[in-house]
């Protein structure tokens, strides 16, 4: 299996061929944000999942095929929405700047 995308979250242990991975990093002023929450909303805007970011600001979802929205909440910041397309067998990398 290939290694992680530069700057991205390691994909070791993830069966990328069978999953539609959406992952990335939340940053503020170029620095990782470790205490943010990233929510995955479906094509109708309905909540599907949420994860807290790691100490390095990383997050990961195992989505289904299609269009999704990432909504990021963090202390002292307005929510940020980003669209992303997920495809089984690929990894969508998203960097979210607050």
């Amino acid at each position: 299996m290939c290694g992680a995308v530069e700057g991205g979250l390691s994909l070791e242990g993830v069966n990328v061929a069978k999953e539609a991975v959406v992952q990335g990093q939340v940053t503020r002023g170029g620095e990782p944000v470790p205490n943010a929450y990233v929510r995955l909303l479906d094509r109708t805007g309905e909540f599907t999942a949420e994860v807290p970011t790691s100490p390095e600001g990383h997050f990961r979802f195992f989505a289904g095929e299609g269009e999704w929205t990432l909504r990021t909440l963090a202390p002292k910041a307005d929510p940020v929405d980003r669209s992303v397309v997920a495809t089984v067998g690929s990894v969508a990398e998203v960097t979210i700047s607050l």
Partner: peptide
């Protein structure tokens, strides 16, 4: 979530789907 209800996902999307 609606996708789990419909059968399009098998688990919450922060977990592997197998």
């Amino acid at each position: 979530s609606p996708d789990e209800y419909a059968g399009r996902l098998l688990a919450p999307a922060h977990l592997p789907q197998e």
